[in-house]
């Protein structure tokens, strides 16, 4: 018993010093969305966003019910960021909203084999008229 107490003490003592030195625990960078609030409670979204997205997919694809609350397109519209030149960054690029947590926990995302990773852009309409190929390269798949 005394040995145990000793070992525990040995484990905790250096930790107090270490806690101040280390720059903290590595964490994903979660970028804030553009809107005020997510479509559901954050705690809920962290746990169940994947269920809601596949549920939404089933309803849309199999039953033709198109609702907005858990639409992937809206997720991307709100959570995508833009780079320095104002161009949207793919939401599954390293460090972006989807990728940062999914890499952190080694969970694959299979949304983007079909779906677009950038928000639909109204302003880009003229640009894509000039460069039609870029418009083709980024098919905008609607939900």
């Amino acid at each position: 018993m005394r040995i145990l107490v000793f070992i525990l003490a040995m484990m905790f003592l250096p930790s107090l010093a270490a806690a101040q030195e280390t720059g903290g625990v590595p964490s994903p960078s979660i970028t804030k969305g553009k809107g005020e609030q997510c479509v559901a409670d954050t705690d809920y979204m962290r746990r169940y966003h994947m269920k809601e997205l596949s549920h939404q997919r089933d309803e849309t694809m199999h039953e033709g019910v198109r609702t907005k609350q858990f639409s992937l397109k809206e997720c991307i519209a709100c959570h995508a960021t833009t780079d320095d030149s104002g161009q949207p960054v793919p939401i599954n690029a390293p460090g972006e909203f989807c990728a940062s947590c999914h890499e952190y926990t080694a969970v694959k995302v299979d949304c983007f084999q079909c779906h677009a990773t950038k928000p639909e852009q109204k302003k880009q309409a003229q640009a894509s008229a000039l460069f039609p190929m870029t418009a083709l390269a980024e098919p905008e798949v609607s939900q």
Binding site: P14, L16, A18, T22, V25, P26, R47, C101, T105
Partner: peptide, 16 residues
């Protein structure tokens, strides 16, 4: 919340 869980676990290992 597995992200928070991993933070908890890494915190244990790194004494933070």
């Amino acid at each position: 919340d597995i992200v928070a869980l991993k933070q908890f676990m890494l915190g244990l290992i790194r004494f933070d």
